[in-house]
Design a protein around this nucleic acid. Sequence first.
RNA 1: GGCGGCGUACCCAAGUGGUUAAGGGGGAGGUCUGCAAAACCUCUAUGCAGCGGUUCGAAUCCGCUCGCCGCCUCCA
Length: 512
Amino acid sequence: MAIVSDAATTSSEEQRRAAGPQVWPPGTQLVGGSANLKGSSLRPFFIYNSLSRSVEEFIALDRDRVTYYSCGPTVYLRQHLGNMRSYIFADTLKRALEFNGYAVRHVMNITDVGHMTSDEDAGEDKVEKTARAEGRSPQEVAHFYRDLFLADLNVLNIEMPEVICAASDHIADMIALIARILERGFAYVAHSGVYFDVEKYRGANRRGRLSRQSLDEQHAGQRLEHAPDKKSPHDFALWVLNQPTHLMQWDSPWGRGYPGWHIECSAMAMKYLGATIDIHSGGIDHVPIHHENEIAQSESATGRPFVRYFVHHAFLVGMEGAKISKSAGKFPVLEDLIRARVNPLAFRLFCLSAKYRSELVFSIDAVRAAERNLYYLYGFAASAPVEEADSPWTQAYRERFQAALNDDLNTPEALAVVLEMVNKAYRDNDRRICGTLKQFDRVLGIRLAEQFEYLKRLKVPADIQALIDERAQARSKKDFGRSDELRMQLQARGWEAKDNRDGTSEYMPRWN
RNA sequence: GGCGGCGUACCCAAGUGGUUAAGGGGGAGGUCUGCAAAACCUCUAUGCAGCGGUUCGAAUCCGCUCGCCGCCUCCA
């Protein structure tokens, strides 16, 4: 039984590190998939690894290819802004790696079965609970909220993961994985389900690595009165049996039932990324239970390390410092921002204004502050000389930008670099920074590139054009009363007038 | 009870042993302008919850105190 010990992991890690720089000396230009990223080269990228509780240099298992699994949504409710911070974080991590020349294979799950509530005695599947409440089938509920979720990703300009996989499409993979765990003796079959044998696994001394909590310290099982046929209250379900009221059931070698929540991530991560994946990310709340259990299951089945870098982000919190959570009932969603006439991409920028490991205090005003930055950048891009080559001085900003990202994803610092560069471009009246800005936007993801051609592509409606023409006439006759009146009319229709010093005027619609 | 985190200006937020404590928002003043907007410039924390300690030197390390929060049970 080859459960790899911590010591073994460390030594192979050291070997890898020692070998790394020889394969990829700083400054090496990449070819192939990363060749389009001019100017970015594989440099040391540091990230906080929850497994070691320290910032480590990231070294991919396979040179410049990264396998990345991030926790996706349970599709029983609209994802709120706290959730969206999570996906923006995952997307930013991926983009930062790509900026460094890595090719990232990103897998995200969609949980549509097996994620239980714990309010009631028996517990209830979250998707089914919503289905009952809304009078729809679990599939309808899952699809409905999945589609809303995907739409939100699109609105926030989050890149689609290479694989998005639903748990219910991978029942067979989960059954196969459970069978392997059983074969290896780390699980047992009881009347109420197939359970992972934590006591047995503890002998291998792996569980508790993430949370640093011994099982005895946890008050595990204290409030879980069901499933009396578990050997130990710490044991968790791999497959649930004999729950006839459950709507979603599948046949298995152990009887009809449905999978436990944790097993899907192990099964799908390993199916699409292999037994050992480079990065696994998720919310900090998943450290003690969900990810701990994932590790236990996966490594029991394969005898190999499951995840090399576990990365956890902190919460978006409300103004009283309390977490914005589903169980609390009230939480803002993307539509609340749109209803408040805030550009959703401002929320993206807002998320980047804090480090992923820090709690971020949410307020509409704070997002509006980020929106000012968004439009500052848009305003610059809309009139920037795209066709000209960048000035040499931009190189220093590119270096600083990358250095910030590579320092444990310090996006606030990176953002500061971007703003300082644009400020310098304005101040020195040297606007040849578009190429660099476009590169930055590959990480920022605020659709900046689209703004460069904005004015040229702009179609002015005839009625707006009529107002513009009349205003030009009024201004030429120095009829400023009429001119201001027309400005107000244009404003009411969403168009802003901007008068230049030379007497010309520019008109563009408001962004939001 | 156990584990973990936080407290930096009016607001958001970097910085975690060593030049003037990033950046943004907001505010004040100014340049430009018919006005407005945009942009630019100047100013806006002798101090980083409080009190001790270590150090040549601390927001940064240690101790205590106060306040806030998360997890241990579904949660990003």
